[in-house]
């Protein structure tokens, strides 16, 4: 179809892998990482879609780029909040500070 197709396919694949990881993994940190992989798949699909045939080859769709830019920042901060909650949960459940997780 066009050059964006492999990127769209990879994005969909990443989304599937991340979805499986988020549902199947037990450690919370791994789930958080899997959700991030899922999100990155979505970003990849959006960025690849910005170069779609209708958008014209010369100028990619700026709306999709802006959405991804917004999404990345929100994803980073949501990940930070998730990490913080995981750390806090770990602290509360392991008063001796035992390694693991």
């Amino acid at each position: 179809m066009n050059a964006a197709l492999p990127f769209t396919a990879c994005g969909v694949l990443l989304f599937g892998i991340g979805l499986y990881g988020a549902l199947a993994a037990r450690p919370l940190l791994r789930r958080l990482l899997a959700a991030n992989i899922m999100g990155n798949g979505v970003f990849m699909v959006l960025v690849a879609g910005a170069y779609g045939p209708a958008a014209g080859a010369a100028a990619p769709d700026p709306v999709a780029h802006a959405l991804v830019l917004t999404g990345i920042v929100v994803a980073v901060s949501a990940t930070a909040l998730g990490l913080h909650l995981v750390c806090r949960l770990h602290e509360l459940s392991a008063p001796g500070g035992e390694p693991g997780a």
Binding site: G16, L19, A54
Partner: peptide, 20 residues
């Protein structure tokens, strides 16, 4: 789910670029 999403992306796409 991934296959459905991929299929939807491959078959849709009309109306893309209007916002651009």
């Amino acid at each position: 789910v991934a296959a459905v999403v991929g299929w939807a992306l491959a078959s849709g796409g009309a109306g893309r670029g209007r916002l651009a």
